[in-house]
Amino acid sequence: MTNVYADKRILLVDDEPEILNMLISILNSEGFYHIKTAQNMKEALALADSFIPEFAILDIMLPDGDGFMLMEQLKKTNDYPVIFLTARGENEDKFKGFGLGADDYIVKPFLPQELIFRMMAILKRTYKNENHFVKLHDSIIDFERAEVIKDNIHIPLTAKEHNILEVLYRNLGRIVTIDALCEAAWGENPFGYENSLMSHISRIRTKIEKNPASPTSLVTIKGLGYKLVVEEN
């Protein structure tokens, strides 16, 4: 399959040249060729000025500073997605990384496929199409207008329905737990909203499905959650 993000400029920072070479090799095999590497913070900052990366993979332990500081510096000039790829696997480091705005945190050792999957997910999220329409089996969701178009009829979505569908769409093809959907609709620690969620799901189905009794787009995974399935383009 063609990599639609192959033209993205990628900055790799790690003090180990062997790791950098391996990362280049992994990324090349996926079609990414606009890659620049740096082995320390100073070099990375200098490179970022001229190269203007659109994605960065940073190590945390660098000879002249740490990846956290580097990310803060890099994001000052341009805001683009950053993944930390590090041997530091402590939760505190992960929380710090995410807290500072990292898009992902991968602990070494890692499988190349894992890195690519995570990277593609972030690229997809960040550089998504301006098209806000999502084509389902029986309808189209317009997230920007918060409405569903079914049989040429525009049906408005409520705020909660919109939030639920958005979370499901972000995890397209994957199960989203009941709890995560409740959190999307009612905020943190939403205990006891399962029945309300079911009512909302039922209402969404009447809007997006041709036959809500036998749904094809918004599928129930018994006891666990729901999954949004879209028509393959």
Binding site: E16, E18, I19, M22, L23, S25, I26, S29, A87, R88, G89, V107, K108, P109, F110, L111, P112, Q113
Partner: peptide, 17 residues
């Protein structure tokens, strides 16, 4: 375990390729 992670990444990465 920290020191093993980086060389192991290379083993895993290249072997996977």
């Amino acid at each position: 375990s920290h020191d093993i992670r980086t060389p192991l990444s290379m083993v895993m990465g290249y072997a996977s390729q």
